[in-house]
Amino acid sequence: MRSSKRFAAVGMLAALALIAFMIESLLPPMLAFAPGTKIGFSSVFVSLCLILYGERDALLVLIVKCALGSVFSGNVFSLYYSLPAGLASLLISVLLYRRAFPKVSVLFISVVSAVCHNITQIMMAWALLNMAQVLCYVPVVTLAGAIAGTVTGACVYYAVKALPERLIYL
């Protein structure tokens, strides 16, 4: 059941996700071959929240990160693609953690959800521009997602490994 400690913990994860998002937006593009994609360190906190506290709170962290992130970075337009992409990747993560885990690893789930995130962004671009040309980017963002997912997956896994249970269990 919800406790105020948990509420605070989720709040902190949301804040961390937001900070990670803001910092990453200031850094130069990491994956130069795929413009517009990022490693997405903020998603580490969303995944952590999912693992620790479940999907409702993870969704909360995601929405806070997307909404405030777009406002603070001065790019409200980005909500058009970042929110659907975030939702899609969260949905996939939830499904995989519920149904497939532990037959699949954390790394795998991370990679799949990162790829889904990126492909959803392409879909949203396609919907807006209405030009099939945009779909040529699918292989590019898939590779970017695979790389990003590997990095964030490792972060999630080792973060969970490192966190002592009594601190989290609320």
Partner: peptide
């Protein structure tokens, strides 16, 4: 509510299948 948490803690970072699937995905793309 900590069951997933514990399960992740106890899991291995990657599975044998991952060594195949993930690089394959990268190379394919």
């Amino acid at each position: 509510m900590g069951s997933l948490f514990r399960a992740v803690k106890e899991s291995k970072p990657f599975k044998k299948a991952d060594l195949l699937i993930i690089p394959l995905l990268m190379l394919a793309s």
